[in-house]
Nucleic acid binder design. Sequence first.
DNA 1: TGGTTTTAGGTAATCGTTTACCTAACAATT
DNA 2: AATTGTTAGGTAAACGATTACCTAAAACCA
Lengths: 327, 327
Amino acid sequence: MITMKEIAQECGISSATVSKIINGNDEHISEATRALVLQTIKKYNYVPNAVAKGLKVKRTNTIGFILPDISNPFFPEIARGVEDAAESCGFAVTFCDTDNDPKRELTSFQLLRSKMVDGVIFTRTLRHSSFDDYLSVNLPIVVVDRRVETTNRNVGKLFVDTFHASRQATEHLIARGCRRIGFVGAANDYDDVRYLGYCSALEEAGLRVEDALCYKSDYSVETGHRGMKAIISAGMPDGVFCGNDLIAVGAMAEIHSMGFTIPTDVRVVGFDDIYLSRYLRPALTTVRQPAYDMGFEAAKMLISHITEGTPLCTLKMKHELIIREST
Amino acid sequence: MITMKEIAQECGISSATVSKIINGNDEHISEATRALVLQTIKKYNYVPNAVAKGLKVKRTNTIGFILPDISNPFFPEIARGVEDAAESCGFAVTFCDTDNDPKRELTSFQLLRSKMVDGVIFTRTLRHSSFDDYLSVNLPIVVVDRRVETTNRNVGKLFVDTFHASRQATEHLIARGCRRIGFVGAANDYDDVRYLGYCSALEEAGLRVEDALCYKSDYSVETGHRGMKAIISAGMPDGVFCGNDLIAVGAMAEIHSMGFTIPTDVRVVGFDDIYLSRYLRPALTTVRQPAYDMGFEAAKMLISHITEGTPLCTLKMKHELIIREST
DNA sequence: TGGTTTTAGGTAATCGTTTACCTAACAATT
DNA sequence: AATTGTTAGGTAAACGATTACCTAAAACCA
């Protein structure tokens, strides 16, 4: 790989001049040498070494994205939003999956820090330690989709009102006439709002929250299967609110395999609106989170904070209950 | 962020010694100073600056992954495989979506190169320029899932036998009694093997390939919808082979919305076996590509080439026809 | 005791940029 | 003519590591 010094030599000038031209600090550079340099750069297909530059200016134009699992269909859309926003600003993004392991989360963060990323976007693990480890270093962070309690000026937040959304989803079930409504979701150490929203709607309607109708594990299809089986064996429900669409997929499969019909026997609603939800049969009623936009806005916020010093803020995104055939 | 020099100062030694300790070149270092340094590192939570190191040793322990679109469900699984393999070797991976735009592909490559990634994993765009642009720089590459004609020692390859797989999928349709079989897939400039496999099976069985039964556009749900509509309006088929599962999803939706039933009226087979295919109703018969493994093996091959000089090779992965309800 | 090895660690150049400050030449001003 | 300003560009010290080579003391050996 050819270096700036070699380009300079080829042009018979110093590398400082080349640097100035490349970076547009060319107030005091003649048009002639400017042209020569540009031409030489083209000729040798020179591209500046970003890591050398990064070391010098302490900006790598890279952000990190730490997330539980890119192969969980909710995240790729966020990721795409992040990517697009980053790319349009000349930033690259490096991804780290944590598999919901707080230890891996921390080591990923260290890795990114050692690589001098300019900021990181975070979707935290379900069960996690305090956020302080991440605040002590002075790296801008924006947390998306998860709640985190801090007023640190170095962290931005971006989420939908999950409590309300869950409540709304459950209310919808009630409005459709369901009276015995189950919940299957993730066991969440620190932010149980999907469950709380569900409870709130039930109580509001004068319905009891029954432990036997609630199953909590993780956000997987498997959980949907197992949860649904458990709930049904505790007495047939007429509706079920699932913590995410993956769970709903499992729940629906279980319902079918037990010979019941959706929505006549049981109504099902999910959460996220992953792209496939509309293609299920019956198509899944679910709460839409604007995943792409969340990623896009998160990256935009982070990058404009990095490049322009715009303060990080808290953004509440709009959700929407998408009613389809499953209810 | 604290530097190595500061750690050295704190310990009253030179930074060279610290460096040696960190990198395990500590043959000639006393146990006492070793312990002191380690302890000081812990105390200040020091983590070496990877970009400075990268600049010096010309290895960043980072690989790039260039792919069409992370939000297309086939890719996250590959990505996860790449991630896991990389992570286990202490490598990070930075992602670039190209949106199937060859220009964006090239700029992504330049970006990665300027960041001194140690290698890149490639899933090329559907229509693309020559590969020579990528070979002229001396960066190890492994191409996954797409075919590329080169014997350059700097490129590894990893794919399934798509031609055979497509042929097998189509033969399966024929074996199920289909005689008027459609194809809907991507218009592919350089590697039309899914279509060719389809043709091959038809010819073998003495069936004619009819243009009116073939629709080519891109790998999207939309294409499935439009393609199916076009084929049906040209005369009802009794089977259809779809270039990927996304297309199959669209095709199935279209078939249903036109009032036909799968598999009684039409049988459908897809390609990829994205995780949702088994949850469609009817569950989709499809060719399984071992996406996670492909990503994992690709990254492993690339990284062991980078770190140990293992030669890059060509790996053919096993596919499998997964027969489900749609046929 | 003198010489050789070994041990423990230091020196300083280097990786490829950026940038604060310098300079030399010329032009303009007084 | 002396001063000042402007233009075009150069110098060299960073940035934070690594590493080839050096050195000084101690250990060993005959």
